[in-house]
Amino acid sequence: METLELTQEEQFQARIDEDIRIEPKDWMPEAYRKTLIRQISQHAHSELVGMLPEGNWITRAPSLKRKSILLAKVQDEAGHGLYLYSAAETLGASRDQMLADLHSGKAKYSSIFNYPTLSWADMGTIGWLVDGAAILNQVPLCRTSYGPYARAMVRVCKEESFHQRQGFEIMQTLCEGATEQKAMAQEALNRWWWPTLMMFGPADADSPNTEQSMKWRIKRFTNDELRQKFVDMMVPQAEFLGLTVPDDKLQWNEAKQGYDFGDVDWAEFWDVVKGNGPCSRERLQARVDAWDQGAWVREAALAHAEKRKQRAA
């Protein structure tokens, strides 16, 4: 029995090594299933909670054009959450259970959304910087080994590109505007830069799951590799905008053809992960309230559907 199980797992790994996608009804190790449910549902929760910091500015967008764009972006995030929840459900997770885990605080979501959005420039910075980081994380996931997750990510990535561009456009407009507008852009970058670097997760040395996830090809790059790519990609863009990245250790390293940069404040990262971010309680409360206040709608819709079914019978 023991050897048979091993063979099954070896066969599974061989398929992964050949880049053959795993589909819902295929045999998979329990740990693979669990890791995926955790990762996909965390990702879905991040999209859902990610609507809140931006939703905060919909009523105060500076023009009808910006308001329409922001509405579309927030609607996309709801959509991304739904693609991902449905991918997690193919692994046997229940939607209500995933949401219950979010609401109880058992499940995590990206720590970035626990920071406040204080000015309009934050809408630019989130699109440009935060979505830029998200894209770096997400593009390799389009080739992740689990089919439904990879397919959901293809759709997400297609839409995410608009998010980043509209953010950059907001930043560019501010940076080409009045001195006060440019100062607003700089101030937003100062607040968001370090939390954005934290989005790639703990340093490789402190990320015990990375090795197994890479072996299963759930992950394709390590956290530190992606963080380095991000810095190398973003510094020239900040320079174009005439903004200063808030890191005195930032320096071009000719030998590695990349930037050296300062250390992330990991104490802050873990504190936010534990639920002590500036807006952690507010964000979670908003989700719980939305769920509780929507209960009667969910029940009424079911009752209505049931009544119509009986009438038709």
Partner: peptide, 11 residues
């Protein structure tokens, strides 16, 4: 293309 939850076919 994927799946979703709804109370009935119309929704």
């Amino acid at each position: 293309v994927g799946s979703l939850h709804a109370a009935d076919a119309e929704m």
